[in-house]
Write a protein that binds this DNA or RNA. Structure first.
Length: 759
RNA sequence: GCCGGGGUGGCGAAAUGGCAGACGCGCUAGCUUUAGGAGCUAGUGGGGUAACCCGUGGAGGUUCAAGUCCUCUCCCCGGCACCA
């Protein structure tokens, strides 16, 4: 038996698989299908990360198991290649983003192939390919046509260092997601997508899918559905009312003030309210600054107005308060210091009254019921180069006119200067020849939109494109979508829960409503992997110098050992720190499996432990308990080695069970041990009946008063009486039971007997 | 503050209420090898010569039996954060 040379074995089979197109899905048809999906990578200049390998390997294992179970499996791959890092890198090095992207994807492709993932490379997609983003633009036009894409002047989060407008999700806590610098508030014309129109369904339809409870909760909290009522308070002496929103109308008798958001107060000013100069100044100051969440003092000023409590008829002061948000509820609240902590803080700070709630009063229906959401419409424009151009034309006569569908894609022009500008305009704004265009409606000269889409656009529908990656007449052909959708199992990172995962559900529902996509939900099952940290427990990053390079590991230990270790290192859904010596163990295990091939016998009996391994590995893969599946395979190999010789059939079951984890070595050994065809084409082993099950010996624990005192070897299925009698013959047990009466006996068949005696 | 997830050997971790520490790393001893940073075998939670005793962040409880269930509490990680 020759030595295990992982480099030669892996090179050999990868070459073969690439020639035969091993991972290819069969065309849509009658066969039962399985669609396995991982989040397609962003091809950064840093190359593949050990974190990618974890997710990809997990789904590769599941995809390979499904193939062995007879499914037509789609396990596709592509590149989410628009985005800031590439653009920034290109600016720094003076290279075209398209060239940088091409180089990066080539490196990623080579790395992924070196790991033996069974992707369908025939369906590779790239969001920056005009044949792809043509459809991203087309979908945008559908949003526009149905009134769900609109332009509005609004305050945005502006990052002065990246010179980019950010969505709220990208500027959490007032800091830029990219550079962590402080952002400022700027007012800009922005395209928005009306995701709030789908808020209710995005919340409700979570009931239809198999996601972890934590993801559902997080999405629901993000959507923030709240049922309450809108109550009108009359303004004393003015022919006007204030609408407040509350989820606690029952506390209305405890109201001691009404507070409005600065933004709301300004609207009043604009519609004829004459406030004192002090109040005006306060409002303007508050609007100009970004209030910190949880800041020590709650700013506020009395307006001099009074509102009338519709239940008690009392007059309470109206205040402008910074803690009341302009875009939540109605932008005004009733202040109930006894019931609400924030109201109490405000009342205490400003010397307002605190009043108990009058429980005796019956309230009835106080106002109109209303449902509100925390979710905001999605700011969809970026003033950057490396994104999909928004396919709109601004005509001096007709206003905003969509680019006709036949003129798609609106290609990103090749330009020399694509750095963002100080003015905050897209660099595309400087390309006069590209901007100047005839209005599709009136044929007069008009101007192209120069904003581009955010990097979330291409990933919001990519799983549809995989069904038909080269389709020319639709995002994907309906028959193909009908066959492949929904995605059966989607694994990804938790960081995408309220971004990509929610965005793509929104796009999907919209496309479903307009008969482009089948199925209410895109992903039937979602799971997530734990993050891989550096050995020091920190996030891996170049600047920290703690990055683990997969290429070196593949070279030293092999792709199979690396894949196996990624699965073995800890519970799949939990964060794990990389252990530098970890691969030694999985490599040794593979060496052992290799050696065993030289010890196979012609015996045809199947061993009980093989059966137990089939059961455990099969169940563990489904539950993503890959670490214990690997450990069971190690136990089996060890057992084979210990017994000196291993029946060929048992050995090949080990190879088959191991093949999704370590596809190269198992294929090689399958050939060496004369297996039929390819190990990957062999059916998944099923549990077989073990003869003479009752003759099997089991170890039964003997306890006295709940403490283990001895063990007993008995035939499986032995009765309580038999076990008890046998136990009582043992001197260790006699000693503990002594002369005392056995009050009670607990018997768990094949496992344990507990004798309870007086103390 | 709120919502999730955690806390078990020197380390990564196992454990349908039923032998705590499987499996792997590391370590110790022996064997083997021309040699080895290779392989094999045995050992490896703490205390004790031993019989045994103690041990899953902490304190109580339920149970014949608790890492697992209940009550209280401390700490770590992730997300959200004035959303009425």
């Amino acid at each position: 038996m020759k030595k295990y040379n992982h480099l030669a074995v892996e090179r050999k089979w990868q070459k073969k698989w690439s020639q035969t197109g091993a991972g290819r899905a069969a065309a849509a048809g009658k066969r039962k299908k399985f669609y396995a999906l991982i989040e397609f990578p962003y091809p950064s200049g840093d190359g593949l990360h050990v974190g990618h390998i974890r997710s990809n390997t997990a789904m590769d294992i599941i995809a390979r198991k499904r193939r062995a179970e007879g499914y037509n499996v789609l396990y596709p791959i592509g590149w989410d290649a628009f985005g800031l890092p590439t653009e920034n890198y290109a600016i720094k090095t003076g290279q075209q983003p398209a060239i940088v992207t091409k180089r990066n994807t080539a490196r990623f492709r080579q790395q992924l192939q070196s790991l033996g993932f069974s992707f369908d490379w025939n369906r590779e997609i790239n969001t920056t390919d005009p044949n792809y983003y043509r459809w991203t633009q087309w979908i945008f036009l559908q949003f526009y046509k149905h009134g769900l894409a609109y332009k509005a002047r609004m305050p945005i989060n502006w990052c002065p260092s990246c010179r980019i407008g950010l969505a709220n999700e990208e500027a959490v806590g007032g800091r830029c997601e990219r550079c962590s610098g402080l952002t400022e508030v700027r007012t800009k014309e922005q395209w928005l997508l009306a995701i709030t129109k789908y808020a209710d369904r995005l919340d409700r339809d979570l009931d239809l899918v198999d996601y972890p409870a934590s993801i559902k909760t997080q999405q629901r909290n993000w959507i923030g559905r709240k049922e309450g009522v809108v109550i009108k308070f009359e303004l004393k002496g003015l022919n006007k009312t204030i609408e407040i929103f509350t989820t606690r109308p029952d506390t209305i008798t405890g109201v001691t003030f009404v507070a409005v958001a600065p933004a709301m107060a300004r609207q009043w000013l604009e519609t004829g309210w004459t406030a004192s100069p002090d109040v005006k100044k306060f409002i303007n100051n508050e609007l100009a600054r970004r209030p910190d969440a949880g800041e020590q003092t709650k700013h506020g000023l009395a307006t001099g107005l009074e509102a009338v409590n519709p239940v008690t008829g009392e007059s309470v002061p109206v205040w402008v308060a910074s803690y009341v948000l302009g875009d939540a509820g109605t932008g005004a609240i009733m202040g109930v210091p006894v019931a609400d902590e924030r109201d109490r803080e405000f009342a205490t700070a400003h010397g307002l009254a605190i009043k108990p709630i009058d429980q005796s009063r019956s309230l009835g229906q106080l106002g109109e019921k209303r449902v509100t959401y925390k979710l905001r419409d999605w700011v969809f424009s970026r003033q950057r180069y490396w994104g999909e151009p928004i396919p709109m034309i601004n005509c001096p006569h007709c206003g905003w006119v969509p680019v006709p569908e036949k003129d798609l894609p609106v290609k990103l022009p090749l330009i020399k200067k694509y750095a963002p500008t100080e003015s905050g305009e897209s660099p595309l704004a400087a390309i006069a020849s590209w901007i100047k265009v005839r209005c599709p409606k009136c044929s007069e000269w008009a101007r192209r939109e120069t904003d581009t889409m955010p990097n979330w656009a291409g990933s919001s529908w990519y799983y549809l494109r995989y069904a038909d990656p080269r389709g020319r007449h639709a995002p994907a052909a309906p028959a193909k979508l009908k066959y492949w959708l929904p995605v059966d199992w989607y694994n990804g990172g938790t960081e995408h829960t309220t971004l990509h995962l929610l965005y793509s559900r929104f796009w999907h529902k919209f496309l479903y409503d307009h008969k482009i996509a089948p199925e209410l939900e895109p992903y039937q099952k979602r799971t997530s992997h734990g993050f891989v940290l550096a050995p020091d427990g920190q996030k891996m990053s170049k600047s920290r110098g703690n990055v683990i390079n997969p290429d070196e590991l593949v070279k030293t230990f092999g792709a199979d050992a690396l894949r196996l270790y990624e699965m073995f290192m800890g519970p799949f859904d939990q964060t794990v720190a990389w252990q530098p010596d970890g691969l030694v163990g999985t490599k040794r295990f593979l060496e052992r499996v290799w050696r065993l091939a030289g010890q196979i016998s012609s015996a045809t009996n199947l061993l009980p432990i093989t059966n137990a391994t089939i059961i455990k590995v099969s169940a563990d893969i489904e539950a993503m308990k890959f670490n214990t599946a690997v450990s069971q395979l190690m136990i089996l190999a060890h057992q084979f080695e210990r017994s000196g010789s291993v029946p060929r059939s048992d050995y090949q079951i080990l190879l088959k069970l191991l093949s999704p984890f370590a596809p190269h070595i198992t294929e090689e050994l399958w050939q060496i041990t004369k297996g039929r065809g390819s190990v990957h084409a062999a059916p998944w082993p099923s549990v077989f009946a073990v003869a003479n099950q009752h003759k099997k010996l089991v170890t039964i624990v003997i306890q006295v008063n709940g403490k283990k005192r001895s063990v007993l070897e008995m035939f499986a299925g032995s009765s309580e009486e038999a076990v008890k009698a046998e136990a009582l013959t043992q001197s260790e047990i006699k000693k503990w039971v002594d002369q005392r009466a056995i009050k009670k006996t607990i018997f768990v068949p094949n496992r344990l007997i507990n004798l309870v005696v007086d103390n």
